[in-house]
Amino acid sequence: MSTKKFDYESLQDAHSIKTYLVSLIDSIEKGRIILKSNGEEMAMRVDDLMKFSVQAKKKDGQNKLSIKLSWSEIKPVIKEERASSMSIGS
């Protein structure tokens, strides 16, 4: 299976960070997050259910706040076979 990656790191002030976050919130509301790098597009369909985690750490005066969304595009397979159709040995 192919792996696609997008990577962006920068230094921002509060104002410009807000701009990025707002554009991500917009994308989530629209159901599709589009990330492009040098013309190469990576689209992620937003799911009804996503794992959302917030982690924070403070150590030696260094602060870190991670916001993470993760979800799977592969839906669980629901087999049509039902328990009732299975034969139970007598």
Partner: peptide, 11 residues
């Protein structure tokens, strides 16, 4: 840096 887009924000 190459051109990047994060949602509607352009880098």
């Amino acid at each position: 840096r190459v051109r990047q887009d994060i949602g509607s924000s352009e880098v």
